[in-house]
């Protein structure tokens, strides 16, 4: 792979949350493997969509990438215009550089804005703490970005409580973009919004991507949104990456049974009758993962080997990776 084209390279990323018993001498009773051995990359200027059901670790993955959580293990490299950052061991200066270039958009537009700060201070905070600008200069930069995301300069002195959900999310987007980052992790940026507002925000994000030459890591549980936004799609299940492929390939020719399951759940106008895979079993218990392939209890194609040996991620085509023993044998239905 040419390091010129990629901006983020992640190898074997793990995030385990220790489970402690309470009290003064609490012991670690086990780990929740929220993200387990995830390997992927993001190309410059593209959008990679991360999709999966609730609790599959997609948000944790996004937070590890933007370093809001400290990863337990793994090798994360960010290729910026001004050099490579090895995220595992950065000094203070490099951490600052990382924060300037990797930003995050949060899911909940209500919880992610401090109700006690004005729009100016919320959006301008990264400029201030990174010594980029302050005072009038900061106000000017914030004013520019705020207009860019569709708000008005008059809104700068207002507090978040005066905005609707969609407007708040625009503030969140402005906060992420004001410092001119190269990679933006968008964690379900539209799932808390009305459908009509969702489309506006998604289009806005696309426009901004063009204008600023951004790379997006777009996390969502909504396959339609992922399909609309992404160049490539990653499917996660129980903390593991199960399939990663360019959008059309993944949608038309999925190679993992879980991907097929997800795709079958996407509502479509054209098709009448029911082709809807019934999902046996329940979402996985992260504390008590099954032996072998984590998906085997719910997989209708599962064989003996799936219950014993955990499959590894294999490449099955250009940019197409699957974690399934029977990727070559199955013919699965896409959209």
């Amino acid at each position: 792979m040419n390091s010129q084209d990629i901006i983020l390279d992640v190898k074997g990323l793990k995030k385990y949350f220790p489970l402690k018993s309470g009290g003064l001498f609490g012991k670690v009773q086990g780990y929740i493997k929220a993200v387990d051995d995830v390997t992927f990359y993001v190309k410059r200027g593209e959008t990679i969509g991360v999709v999966g059901e609730s609790g599959c670790g997609k948000t944790t993955l996004g937070r590890c990438i933007s370093l809001l959580y400290e990863p337990t293990a793994g090798d994360v490299k960010v290729y910026l215009d001004e050099g490579v950052l090895d995220v595992g061991n950065m000094n203070k200066e490099e951490t600052k550089k990382f924060r300037r270039n990797v930003q995050m958009i949060f899911q909940d537009p209500y919880a992610s804005l401090n109700p006690r700060m004005t729009v100016l201070n919320i959006v301008g905070e990264s400029l201030l703490v990174n010594d980029v600008a302050k005072g009038d200069e900061m106000e000017q930069m914030v004013g520019q970005i705020v207009q860019k995301v569709g708000l008005k300069v008059e809104h700068l002195r207002r507090y978040p409580h005066s905005f609707s959900g969609g407007q708040r999310q625009r503030i969140g987007i402005a906060r992420a973009l004001v410092i001119n980052p190269q990679l933006v992790v968008a964690d379900e940026p539209v799932s808390a919004l009305d459908v009509s507002i969702q489309a506006q925000i998604l289009n806005q994000l696309k426009d901004l991507q063009k204008d600023f030459g951004l790379s997006y890591m777009f996390v969502s549980h909504n396959m339609s949104v992922i399909r609309y936004m992404s160049d490539r799609i990653m499917v996660m299940y129980a903390g593991k990456l199960v399939e990663m492929a360019p959008r059309e390939v993944l949608l038309n020719h999925p190679r993992h049974p879980y991907t097929e399951l997800l795709l079958s759940a996407v509502p479509r106008v054209s098709r009448r009758g029911s082709f809807r895979l019934v999902t046996p079993g329940e979402p996985p218990d992260l504390l008590n993962l099954p032996q072998g392939c984590v998906f085997n209890p719910r997989c209708k194609y599962a064989k003996e080997v799936c219950k014993e040996v955990a499959p590894s991620l294999v490449q099955v085509g250009p940019d197409h990776f699957v974690r399934c023993h029977m990727a070559d044998e199955l013919t699965l239905t896409g959209i």
Binding site: L68, M104, A111, N114, N130, R175
Partner: peptide, 25 residues
């Protein structure tokens, strides 16, 4: 809270997060 995480993501120091975001909260 998300807004405290957001401040961390913006690059704010622990001291700033506690004094500017948490205590006023």
């Amino acid at each position: 809270e998300d807004f405290a995480l957001a401040a961390k993501g913006a690059g704010a120091s622990t001291f700033r997060i506690v004094t500017k975001h948490l205590i006023p909260g």
